[in-house]
Computed example of a mutant assay.
Amino acid sequence: MTTVAEVKRWTKGILAEHPDLVLEKRDLYLLPLRHIYRAIEFLGSSQRTFPTPAGRFGVLFAPPSVQMSHSNGFYLQVGHSTDPLFQELLESETRKVLEGGAAPSPFH
């Protein structure tokens, strides 16, 4: 299972690099938050070393009938946290999502 402490450790570098990011538990948000937001959500995972971060785009003021969940985003392909290139890949994929340049990849 992906823990809050692991997410803090994994995002430490990108948070230092980007003052426009804020970590709230398992969610990494791009500031400022306006009507539409961009975030990386670190979902729970059944395997400790296989996190499932998802890029998420959402509307802050949606009508109650609109369901807002991680299904409005896409999974980042970052591999296992024990892989030598994990940190570099996570930061690269995070940048793509936050810059709006990542194309959705199929759910795995």
Score class of each variant (00 low, 15 high):
residue 2 T to I: 15
residue 4 V to C: 01
residue 4 V to L: 06
residue 4 V to K: 09
residue 5 A to M: 07
residue 6 E to Q: 15
residue 6 E to R: 08
residue 8 K to S: 12
residue 9 R to D: 10
residue 9 R to P: 01
residue 9 R to M: 07
residue 10 W to D: 07
residue 10 W to S: 02
residue 11 T to V: 11
residue 13 G to T: 13
residue 14 I to Y: 11
residue 15 L to Y: 13
residue 16 A to W: 12
residue 18 H to T: 06
residue 19 P to E: 13
residue 20 D to F: 11
residue 21 L to D: 04
residue 22 V to H: 06
residue 22 V to C: 04
residue 22 V to P: 00
residue 28 L to S: 03
residue 28 L to R: 03
residue 28 L to H: 09
residue 29 Y to Q: 02
residue 30 L to W: 09
residue 31 L to M: 15
residue 32 P to H: 10
residue 32 P to Q: 05
residue 36 I to Y: 14
residue 36 I to S: 04
residue 38 R to K: 12
residue 38 R to P: 01
residue 38 R to H: 05
residue 40 I to Q: 00
residue 40 I to S: 00
residue 41 E to R: 13
residue 41 E to I: 08
residue 42 F to P: 02
residue 44 G to D: 11
residue 44 G to Q: 06
residue 46 S to H: 05
residue 46 S to C: 01
residue 49 T to K: 06
residue 49 T to E: 08
residue 49 T to H: 10
residue 50 F to E: 10
residue 50 F to T: 08
residue 53 P to F: 12
residue 54 A to G: 00
residue 54 A to W: 12
residue 56 R to D: 03
residue 58 G to I: 12
residue 59 V to D: 11
residue 59 V to M: 11
residue 60 L to G: 06
residue 60 L to C: 10
residue 66 V to Q: 05
residue 68 M to E: 14
residue 68 M to L: 14
residue 69 S to T: 13
residue 71 S to T: 14
residue 72 N to D: 11
residue 74 F to I: 09
residue 75 Y to A: 09
residue 75 Y to P: 05
residue 76 L to M: 07
residue 78 V to A: 04
residue 78 V to L: 08
residue 81 S to P: 03
residue 83 D to H: 15
residue 83 D to G: 02
residue 83 D to C: 07
residue 85 L to P: 00
residue 88 E to H: 11
residue 89 L to R: 15
residue 90 L to N: 03
residue 91 E to G: 00
residue 91 E to A: 10
residue 96 K to D: 12
residue 98 L to M: 15
residue 99 E to H: 13
residue 101 G to D: 14
residue 101 G to Q: 14
residue 103 A to Y: 06
residue 104 P to I: 09
residue 104 P to W: 12
